[in-house]
Design a protein around this nucleic acid. Structure first.
Lengths: 183, 183
DNA sequence: GCAAACATGTAAGAGGTTACATGATTAC
DNA sequence: GTAATCATGTAACCTCTTACATGTTTGC
């Protein structure tokens, strides 16, 4: 999946691994996270497979050792072929907190409640972050980058998902906390 | 994480890898999935670490080659120690569909809509499954297994999460489909 | 001068996925 | 008899996580 995220971003223009990591951190990381170690090695692999090409930029003088990647025709074809194959199944959910809660009946109720309240804080922070992102940050950085409105509209649907997910999560946490309090 | 799921289930009683796989498939798989290959190898590893013990049951005559695992004192201690350490961070979400949607602006809108409508069907099926599970199936199998009410109450909160997640997902899909239709 | 941000990599180990492989038992 | 379910494993490969490792540039 990371492979296609990198190809997808490079389809907008040439970028370094660092740029891709930064871009991912403020966009796709909310539904697909990757470490820089993974990004750099995957880019090398994509280059070996002829899907991207790279050049170390020195002439710029300002920033040394920047390896900038460009999508090749084969890379663009690979990206489009992947997008053409519709997803036919549901991805498997992995929610650590639910695993813990599932086996928490024998724990001290106060310890469970503390854990849920901490998670509530974290999810509230994430929701606040999404709200801020949808109103300001995203708009400004996109206008500068001259990304087509159509692309922005699609990006917004994924941000909207994140927002709704956190709202749902907070409500479920509140109701679950109430239930455990009254046990 | 799988390690603790296996220890958690074995804490209710001795079981084979097959039993654990079956149990997981109708409970924790909704928030933590594992293949049977992973379960069998993890059980062997837990045994090597002294957290579980196993015996091949032959005397039963009926079912051959059943290797039944039992939690050791060390295993129970390991489970309780893990439960005592509250989760301090948010797990990373991985949602394949959002990755695809994020890079779908240049696709044929009808292809995107078809993909979203297919996902809508799958999520509706999952919601139906959860509704059926909460009303019938779970209750019956639990009464037979004599699981304490308290444990069942905790299990229900995770099922409730699954239900809410699917309801949220369906609404988001409907709204996203409408938006793309009107682009 | 120093901290933050920029910038790129390697390596070991853990975890997850797919395919291969086998065989018994039960219900129709 | 045959399909579904019960039952257990191995191997190859890929992906992910953590830690190690290094050096530059920019802003205060």
């Amino acid at each position: 999946m990371l492979k296609y995220i990198l190809l997808g971003f490079l389809n907008y223009g040439a970028m370094s691994g660092y740029d891709l990591k930064s871009l991912m951190d403020e966009s796709t990381a909310h539904f697909w996270h990757a470490y820089h170690s993974q990004i750099y090695t995957t880019l090398r692999k994509l280059e070996a497979d002829g899907l991207v090409e790279s050049d170390v930029i020195d002439d710029d003088e300002s920033r040394l050792n920047r390896r900038v990647y460009t999508l090749t025709a084969a890379g663009r074809a690979e990206l489009l072929a992947w997008l053409d194959q519709a997803l036919m199944s549901l991805p498997q959910v992995k929610e650590d907190l639910l695993v813990r809660l599932f086996f928490s009946a024998s724990r001290d109720p106060q310890a469970v409640l503390n854990e849920l309240r901490l998670q509530r804080q974290l999810h509230q922070q994430k929701l606040d972050y999404y709200e801020a992102l949808s109103s300001e940050h995203l708009l400004h950085s996109i206008e500068e980058a001259r990304i087509p409105d159509r692309d922005v509209a699609f990006w917004r649907t994924t941000l909207d998902f994140g927002r709704r997910f956190e709202v749902m999560y907070l409500r479920w946490l509140d109701d679950t906390i109430s239930q455990i309090e009254s046990l």
